[in-house]
Design a protein around this nucleic acid. Structure first.
Length: 297
DNA sequence: ACTACTCCCTGCCAGC
DNA sequence: TGCTGGCAGGGAGTAG
């Protein structure tokens, strides 16, 4: 499911429910998701207070009062939902038949809160590409899952010069390089396609073509860095993208999908002003890439 | 150190 | 109605 904007939206949805709450019980309904749960997973969480909900790249980070950190990745199809007072927080329109919904509920966090009482936060993941791990806050940044991650595209760190340096020497297609979490952390298939369109750059051009010393390369890397930041920030502001039946933790839908310029628009006209191109779907690295062959060069 | 490719898993949809 | 194949927001592992 989620790229950075969706994970950030999940984080914001869970924050008011989880921060400050005590975990009274963790129901772990299977031994593994993509990977086995760490040994003693639920025991380590039981009784702990949640001090903060954070995010790094596509990872959700649940900080606990004893210095432990629950690292959660949603894979392709993971989602959290909140249930309070025994009733789902999801609006009726998205209510699946109970049995179908619950079949892929893999972890249930039972929470107790001073002000607002009991709640459950439920992790559901049909494809089980998601996973959970435990770390210590003191060495969170050096944890194997997080250590190699690249620059966050939110914030001010990502600029043309930095991006050019990251892409230098790479003969891979620009699309593939941007999908690599060690370069820019948190981008996925949708937002890479959207950012390349916004920057007017072909997904097939080599990554290194943005890293040269010439004025052209400098101008391209600057354009792309700006495009990435704008697309990601706009998507976060829109609450992410809701494909298929994906909903946020509080049951509402993101709406960035209505602003896609290329993703899933094969055969439709390019929306760039003055461009007469038709959006095409190609396959790179086994994944769909959507682009305009006319204005993306 | 790169790059390319396969695989993990379930659900959904188009086409027959 | 089925069935089949292809596709899906990710990324680890392996081989070259």
């Amino acid at each position: 499911m989620p790229e950075l904007p969706e994970v950030e939206t999940v984080r914001r949805g869970l924050q008011p429910v989880m921060e400050g709450a005590r975990i009274t019980k963790v129901e772990q309904r299977r031994a593994d998701l993509r990977f086995p749960f760490p040994a003693g997973f639920s025991d380590r969480l039981n009784g702990r207070y949640i001090t903060a909900l954070a995010r790094r790249a596509k990872y959700l980070l649940v900080h606990l009062d004893d210095g432990a950190v629950l690292i959660s990745h949603l894979g392709m199809s993971g989602s959290f939902r909140i249930e309070e007072g025994g009733v789902s927080a999801r609006p009726g329109a998205f209510q699946h038949p109970r049995s179908k919904e619950e079949r892929h509920d893999h972890v249930v966090f039972h929470l107790e809160r001073r002000e607002t009482g009991l709640a459950r936060v439920i992790y559901n993941d049909p494809r089980r590409f998601g996973f959970m791990a435990l770390a210590e806050a003191a060495d969170l940044q050096s944890h194997p899952l997080l250590a190699g991650l690249g620059v966050e595209p939110t914030g001010n760190a990502l600029d043309g010069a930095l991006l050019a340096g990251l892409l230098a020497g790479k003969r891979a297609p620009l699309k593939a390089a941007l999908m690599d979490q060690r370069v820019v952390a948190g981008l996925g298939n949708i937002y890479v396609c959207e950012a390349l369109w916004r920057a007017g750059l072909s997904p097939r051009r080599t990554a290194a073509s943005l890293a040269g010393t010439g004025g052209r390369a400098t101008e391209r890397s600057k354009r792309l860095a700006e495009a990435i930041r704008i697309v990601i920030n706009e998507a976060v502001a829109a609450g992410g993208s809701s494909l298929r039946d994906y909903v946020q933790a509080d049951g509402s839908l993101g709406y960035f999908q209505h602003r896609f310029n290329v993703y899933d628009r094969a055969g439709e006209p390019c929306r760039k002003e003055g461009c007469s191109g038709i959006i095409r779907r190609i396959v790179q690295g086994g994944r769909s890439t959507f682009h305009c062959p006319v204005c993306q060069r």
